[in-house]
């Protein structure tokens, strides 16, 4: 598979791999039957201005090299961002930060930003209970 250097970097040495204990939000997307499953856990805290930010974020992924690299990249992009900013991270942002993905992988293995959105949604749901 023809992957960019950046994809291979994040695939062979992924950042923020693992699972946060007692997370504030959990987002799971994909399905192992299709070959991809991603789980993102986040920890949220308030910054000096009183805005909610992603203090910590980790991923676990079952999937191809692109799935792992996009997971790793989305955690890098999200870390320290406010929830409103983090929510706006798109699949394209992730792909661009990775210097592109093979066309075939744009749809199926680029679910990491969706998993992040799910984690934020989960956090808000729990908070508003």
């Amino acid at each position: 598979m023809e992957y960019s250097k950046k994809v291979m970097e994040h695939f062979t040495k992924p950042k923020n791999m693992g699972e946060i204990k007692n997370p504030d939000g959990i987002g799971t997307v994909g399905n192992p039957v299709c070959g991809d499953l991603m789980k993102i856990t986040i920890k949220v805290s308030k910054n000096k201005k009183g805005k909610e930010v992603i203090k910590d974020v980790k991923f676990k992924t079952f999937g191809c090299a692109a799935a792992v690299a996009t997971s790793s990249m989305v955690t890098e992009l999200a870390k320290g961002k406010t929830l409103n900013e983090a929510e706006k991270i798109t699949r394209n942002d992730v792909a661009e930060s990775l210097e592109g993905l093979p066309p075939l992988k744009m749809h199926c293995s680029n679910l990491a930003s969706d998993a992040l959105k799910e984690a934020i949604k989960d956090y808000r749901k729990k908070k508003n209970k």
Partner: peptide
């Protein structure tokens, strides 16, 4: 775990194999 990622990791170590995974 998924075959393409096994394949790509092994490839990094110089070992060339193939997979029946959809992703490949």
């Amino acid at each position: 775990i998924e075959g393409e990622s096994i394949l790509m990791r092994l490839n990094e170590k110089g070992v060339m194999v193939s997979t029946g995974s959809a992703c490949s």
